[in-house]
């Protein structure tokens, strides 16, 4: 995985602060591939059960705080599907290939 230990620590700290201790963060996408370079930081979040509006507000808080500490970079965050909701293709890939932080 192409994240430094320092970056991982920051992402986990911000995740805990914004989503609480029951949430888990997984890295997926190009940053899991050691042979590539650069690319977005794609994160998959499980354990967050809120309304759509709350999840969106949480996502914005997470991205703002993470970028403040990591510097400006492309970070994207995908939530695990809510109970009873169909899994979107991106959520399936993230769940199958994600590496826990």
């Amino acid at each position: 995985m192409r994240l430094t230990p320092h970056q991982i620590t920051i992402l986990k700290e911000v995740g805990l602060e914004v989503f609480g201790p029951q949430a888990r963060l997984y890295l997926f996408g190009s940053r899991t591939d050691d042979t590539q370079r650069g690319g977005d930081i794609d994160l998959y979040v499980t354990g967050v059960h809120n309304t759509v509006a709350e999840m969106l507000a949480g996502k914005i808080r997470f991205l703002v705080r993470a970028k403040q500490r990591l510097g400006e970079r492309r970070i994207d965050l995908v939530f695990a599907p809510a109970e009873g909701k169909t899994q979107e293709p991106i959520q399936r890939i993230a769940r199958e290939t994600g590496i826990a932080l």
Binding site: L56, K59, I60, L63, V64, K67
Partner: peptide, 13 residues
């Protein structure tokens, strides 16, 4: 500055 970044993310979303 944080408020500015929030507005930026709101717009991205």
């Amino acid at each position: 500055a944080e408020g500015w970044q929030v507005l930026r993310e709101l717009r991205n979303q």
